[in-house]
Design a protein around this nucleic acid. Structure first.
Lengths: 108, 108
DNA sequence: GGTATGTTCAACCATATGGTTGAATGATAA
DNA sequence: TTATCATTCAACCATATGGTTGAACATACC
């Protein structure tokens, strides 16, 4: 499997903001309209709208209209790819960690 | 375990750049001096130095002087925390994915 | 049609990134 | 102590984020 650099940039960039991480968490539980998403945060709707655009570009969520509302939910496919990457990444890191620990023990 | 928002911001922010991801990968294999790190990329040393400062703030690497050189390596402790988070995060995501898939099947 | 509700767009501001160049610092070697 | 190598700092530029306000769309309701 190939690493899609651009995708990873967008996914990790999305995760770099606490509001966006929180939005992902909440939207993962239950799909929500834009204004419901915005409610808990002390920022304007426009600010949340921008966060959602960033998450959408990263393909972590998608929106569809339901009447007056825009309903937001986690995007299954892209989420799967991201999740897959995170797992591989973690494995690689942990391998390295193991090697580092061995190294540190040797030095003692 | 508590989520250190600030740490996560810095870690994911670090991972959002392809050059930094690549630096982490290479430094994980073998500790490297700053100029050796810089060699493969078509940017100035100063640019790489900035990337390293960002990675250092995120506690993903540390530097120590060896003679004239600054030697860079993966930071075991912070990396462990980050890795731990990634694992939890992935689990949560995958759970949600499962639920989403069920939902999608139901809709058919 | 006109009005209310829900969301986005446009213009703006401040700060961070990602890059440059050129000067300054640290450490070693002559 | 001076020259050299390795790295960072300072000043600058362009672009992206994260926020604001106020106007503009879209859809539903009367």
């Amino acid at each position: 499997m190939v690493e899609h650099t651009q995708t990873l940039d967008a996914v990790f960039g999305s995760l770099a903001d606490p509001t966006r991480r929180d939005i992902l968490k909440r939207v993962g539980r239950k799909e929500l309209s834009v204004s419901k998403i915005a409610k808990p945060y002390n920022v304007t709707l426009a600010a949340i709208s921008k966060h959602l655009i960033i998450l959408e570009k990263a393909k972590l969520i998608n929106k569809h209209r339901r009447g007056k509302q825009q309903v937001v939910r986690l995007s299954p496919t892209a989420l799967k790819d991201a999740s897959e990457y995170l797992r591989r990444y973690r494995k690689i890191w942990e391998e390295r960690l193991d090697r580092l620990e061995v190294y540190l023990i040797k030095k003692k």
